[in-house]
């Protein structure tokens, strides 16, 4: 049976879990955001590079 009543220690127990959850959310958010941002940029630049290399040289 779950016991979610931390009694007189709730002031210490719940902030510890809350801060941990926030840090995990921040790590997931920033990590995925960082990877997504650079993947899009790399793919866009690779397309530009391919277009430049296929363009006829005058």
């Amino acid at each position: 049976m779950l016991d979610l009543d931390a009694g007189k220690y709730a002031l210490y127990v719940w902030p510890a879990f809350g801060i941990s959850a926030l840090v995990f959310v921040a790590l997931i958010w920033t990590g995925l955001g960082f990877a997504r941002k650079w993947r899009r940029k790399a793919e866009a630049l690779a397309e530009q590079l391919a277009a430049v290399s296929q363009a006829p040289k005058s």
Partner: peptide, 14 residues
């Protein structure tokens, strides 16, 4: 995060 770093380096190289 390593994947992000690899993409960053690929973008900078491009």
């Amino acid at each position: 995060r390593i994947r992000g770093e690899v993409w960053r380096r690929r973008a900078e190289a491009a």
